[in-house]
Structure formats: C-alpha cells, structure tokens
C-alpha cells in the first residue's frame, strides 16, 4: 500500500485550490491542484489517483462528466463532489454515477478532511488524516 494518499483537486475557483491544497498536504496526503477541467482530465488519464475531488459547475466540462470519466478509468478511485449548487436531483445523479460522497459548499476545511478520511478508510488506509488542530 502506498504511503500517502494520492488526491486530485479540481475547482475553477483558484482560492479553493490555494487553501485546500496546503491543508490536504498538511494532513499527510499528496495533492495535485487543477483549475482547468480539461487539463485535469488529461492528468487523470496519465495517473491513477486514489481520490478525485471535483466541483460540478465549471465552464466547458461539467463535474459530472469528470466523474464519469474517472469511473470509466478506474473503479477504485473515490470521487468526491464539492458543489455550491446542491439539489436532490443532482445529488442522486452523482451517487448514481458512482460518486463516493457529496459535500455542499460552503464547508469547513475540517469537514472536508473528514470526508477525505472516510475515503481513505474505505481504501484501507489507516486513519492518519487528521485536520490540523
């Protein structure tokens, strides 16, 4: 088992990457941050990530499409959706298409990390991911 969890974070809001990136690193995972969905998809084709975190409402490529692409590529990758436009329909669609979890914006960094921890758990990692105190 790899030492560190490999995470890809995709959100067209720069600040999300700027803030969550360091937080994830601090919690003991590797993270690659993307703002451009196309570039992120290219990267996903190159490397298999443990966890992919993506927004839904982005220009050009929709987060659901990203979800589908990731699931096509790998069954094992846990996809976490973060979105400001959460509705019952969207949530069910995402779950239907294989998302691991959905968290609505706004959220606190520690709530986010809790979800990452759940994902790590389900992948068999020991619970090392703790939010900075």
């Amino acid at each position: 088992m790899k030492e560190k969890l490999e995470i890809l974070l995709l959100d067209d809001e720069a600040i999300v990457g700027n803030r969550l990136g360091p937080a994830i690193k601090k919690a003991g995972c590797n993270v690659e941050v993307f703002e451009d969905p196309q570039k992120a998809l290219n990267r996903i084709n190159e490397k298999e990530f443990d966890v992919v975190v993506t927004d839904i409402m982005m220009a050009d490529v929709n987060g659901i499409q990203v979800l589908e692409e990731v699931r096509k590529k790998s069954d094992k990758t846990k996809v976490i959706i973060i979105t400001g436009y959460a509705t019952v329909a969207l949530a069910r669609e995402a779950m239907d298409k294989g998302a691991f979890d959905i968290i609505a914006k706004p959220f606190r960094p520690k709530d986010f990390l809790a979800v990452i921890a759940k994902a790590a758990d389900s992948l068999g990692y020991k619970r090392e991911i703790v939010a900075a105190a």
């Binding site: 914006k105 959220f107 960094p109």
Partner: peptide
C-alpha cells in the same frame, strides 16, 4: 455559495495556521 466557501476556507486557514 462559491464566494462564501472561499471566505470560509480562507478564514479557517488563517485561524488554524
């Protein structure tokens, strides 16, 4: 929700770090 989230994340990061 987007700007709010950004504010939330930034403020928490500042608070913690």
């Amino acid at each position: 929700n987007n700007p709010l989230n950004n504010i939330m994340l930034t403020a928490h990061t500042m608070l913690e770090d």
